[in-house]
Structures are given as C-alpha cells and as structure tokens.
Computed example of a mutant assay.
Amino acid sequence: MAKHWVAPRFGGSEVLELVDTEVPEPGPGEVTIDVRAAGVNPADTKHVRQGDPADLPVPIGYEVAGVLSTVGPDTEIASGGGAVGDEVLAFRVSGGWAERITVPAADVFAKPAALGFAEAANLLLAATTAADMIRVTRAEGRDTVVVHGASGAVGVSLLQLLRPLGTRVIGTASERNADTVRRFGGEWVAYGDGLEARIRDRAPDGVDVALDCVGTDEAVDVSLALVADRSRIVTIAAPGRAQSDGIRAVGGAQPESAAFRDSVRQRLIDLAGAGELEVPVARTFPLAEALAAVHLLESQHPGGKLALLP
C-alpha cells in the first residue's frame, strides 16, 4: 500500500483526499517509481472540477521525480536502459501525488545529476508548455516578443527558451517580480493601467509575437492591439477569448500539442542537465500537506515552483 492523493468527487481542492492504494506490479513496458518529489501545477486540480463520473476517483499529479524500485519485463525507459535504483523523472503521468507509482516506461527519463528531485519534478509541464507556445507562434530571433506573466513558471521557461534564439523579449510582471524577469533575460514592464503604452515605448518598431500565460482581459486586449498577425498571439489561460477573438489557444489535451510536448521532453531535460534551463523552486511540502501547497499556488504569488516530498 502507498499514500496517494485522489479526487473522489468533482470540485475544487476541498474534495481532495489522501488515501491508501495498492500499487500494481509493473508489466512489460512499465516501471514503478518510489517518488521523491511531485510537482504542483494549476492543472493538477483544474482538471477535477468536472468530468465523467465513471472516471472517479481521479488520481492527482502529472509529474514526479524519484528512484526506480521495479522494472517490468523486457522494459527500457524513454531515455534508454533503466535499472532498479536509478534516479528518474516522469511526465505526463497520472497520480503523481503519491509515495509510489507504476507508470508507462515511455514517460520516464533518466534524471540529470545536476537537477535535484524537486527541480526535476517541476521541469516538464511548464517547459513543454512554453516550447509549444513558441512552436505555434513561430517565434524566432528577429522577433520582438511580449510574454504576459513572465515571472511565473511557464513565463520563466519561455524567457530561457527564447534567449538562445536571440529574440528580444519584453516580460510583464509585478514590480516585486521585476528582478526575476531580468534575471532570465527579459525586459521588465509592469502590468496594469497603461500597459500598452509602456510596451510601445519599449518597442517603437512594433511587437511580432505575444505569449499569454495569465489569461486576463488586459493581456489579451494589449496583445490584440500590439500584434497585427493574430496567428502569432497564443494563450494558455483564456480559451474563451481565443475563440471569440481569433487567436491561438494551446493545451496539453489537444492532440497536436500533446504529441509535440511529448517529442521535446528529452531535449528539455538535456538543457536542464546542462544548466541552460533552470527550475526555480520556492518551497517544498510534505506529501500530507498537499492542500497547503495548493492554497499557496492559488494565491498566485508562490515565488517559484512548489513540490511535494513523500
């Protein structure tokens, strides 16, 4: 038996329960991971607000890092090899907020020694989302790009992935997070009244791409005012505005996005292992205190990624 967070009914974070579950032995193509850290993301609880009752109870958590405890017959992990005792990370999995989890080996990768467990458990959801946003907007070195919410997890990944392209990036954030935007290569601009004018002052020759990580009307409205080609505006948080205003919205549930995100996992892990993609971790919590982590995340000011430590 192992402790495991689930949603026994649909709703907000208040429905989550920590329960004992049987962890199945891995079959061919599967491995069991003793979890050392589980990532905490808005999507973890967002996806249990409603759904098909037949799917209940819903296991919580999409990414983990830990140690292989069992390897199924004739099985290799996605990065090759894989033996009991190896340190690994996994994404996209189901039920990562757990002490132990059996998952498809195709979603498991060797953890770079340079990454701690908390960092590794928070790398791929944000970084694959950022890479997907760059893909759909075709952002490249000659572009001027605005990133709304540049100090958040996806925003920080965007800043780091855009930097080697030579792209000029203007990042919106609060004043308290200005140094974070600058640290990762962005030019900070405060959001709030007058945002469009402040960005135009920074970029009098225009803005080519807008990447929205926050979903506010301000972010979408300013993006529409600044970027002429609506196919080069993408949001991960305002699907309604995307539909009504003709901009792009991406999410991991979209088949094209899911396939792309899966395809770039190893590249992003390699970048992180080489020190070229940092995962700022603000705080860790014991697994049993997952709800406290969720409440901090929902405050929208965690100051970095959060991890659960079984």
Score class of each variant (00 low, 15 high):
residue 45 T to C: 08
residue 45 T to K: 10
residue 45 T to D: 06
residue 45 T to H: 10
residue 48 V to A: 06
residue 49 R to T: 11
residue 51 G to N: 09
residue 52 D to Q: 09
residue 53 P to S: 13
residue 54 A to N: 08
residue 54 A to V: 03
residue 54 A to R: 15
residue 55 D to F: 06
residue 57 P to A: 15
residue 57 P to Y: 14
residue 57 P to G: 13
residue 58 V to T: 12
residue 58 V to H: 09
residue 59 P to Y: 01
residue 60 I to P: 04
residue 62 Y to S: 13
residue 62 Y to H: 10
residue 62 Y to D: 12
residue 63 E to H: 02
residue 64 V to G: 06
residue 65 A to W: 00
residue 66 G to I: 01
residue 66 G to T: 02
residue 67 V to C: 12
residue 68 L to Q: 12
residue 69 S to Q: 11
residue 70 T to G: 15
residue 70 T to S: 15
residue 71 V to I: 13
residue 72 G to R: 11
residue 73 P to N: 09
residue 75 T to R: 00
residue 75 T to I: 01
residue 76 E to G: 10
residue 76 E to M: 11
residue 76 E to H: 06
residue 77 I to Q: 11
residue 78 A to R: 08
residue 79 S to I: 09
residue 79 S to T: 11
residue 79 S to F: 04
residue 79 S to Y: 04
residue 82 G to M: 11
residue 85 G to S: 12
residue 86 D to T: 01
residue 87 E to Q: 12
residue 88 V to S: 14
residue 89 L to Y: 03
residue 89 L to E: 05
residue 89 L to F: 06
residue 91 F to K: 01
residue 91 F to R: 01
residue 93 V to P: 06
residue 96 G to I: 03
residue 96 G to H: 03
residue 96 G to V: 05
residue 97 W to I: 13
residue 97 W to V: 13
residue 98 A to S: 15
residue 98 A to W: 07
residue 98 A to K: 12
residue 100 R to G: 10
residue 101 I to Y: 02
residue 102 T to Y: 07
residue 103 V to R: 04
residue 104 P to H: 03
residue 105 A to G: 13
residue 105 A to F: 06
residue 106 A to F: 02
residue 106 A to I: 09
residue 106 A to R: 13
residue 106 A to S: 14
residue 107 D to S: 15
residue 110 A to L: 14
residue 114 A to R: 09
residue 115 L to C: 14
residue 115 L to T: 08
residue 115 L to I: 09
residue 116 G to D: 04
residue 117 F to I: 07
residue 119 E to C: 12
residue 119 E to F: 07
residue 120 A to H: 00
residue 120 A to L: 01
residue 120 A to P: 00
residue 120 A to S: 03
residue 121 A to M: 14
residue 121 A to I: 08
residue 122 N to G: 15
residue 123 L to I: 08
residue 123 L to P: 07
residue 124 L to D: 00
residue 125 L to S: 15
residue 125 L to W: 04
residue 125 L to T: 14
residue 126 A to Q: 14
residue 127 A to C: 06
residue 127 A to R: 00
residue 129 T to R: 03
residue 129 T to K: 03
residue 130 A to F: 00
residue 130 A to V: 02
residue 131 A to Q: 07
residue 132 D to A: 14
residue 132 D to L: 14
residue 133 M to K: 09
residue 134 I to N: 13
residue 136 V to E: 09
residue 137 T to G: 14
residue 137 T to E: 14
residue 138 R to V: 05
residue 139 A to S: 14
residue 141 G to F: 07
residue 142 R to G: 12
residue 142 R to L: 05
residue 143 D to G: 09
residue 144 T to N: 07
residue 145 V to N: 05
residue 145 V to S: 11
residue 146 V to W: 01
residue 148 H to Q: 10
residue 149 G to W: 00
residue 151 S to N: 10
residue 151 S to K: 12
residue 152 G to A: 11
residue 152 G to V: 02
residue 152 G to T: 03
residue 152 G to W: 00
residue 153 A to W: 00
residue 155 G to W: 00
residue 156 V to N: 11
residue 156 V to H: 09
residue 157 S to A: 15
residue 160 Q to S: 11
residue 160 Q to P: 05
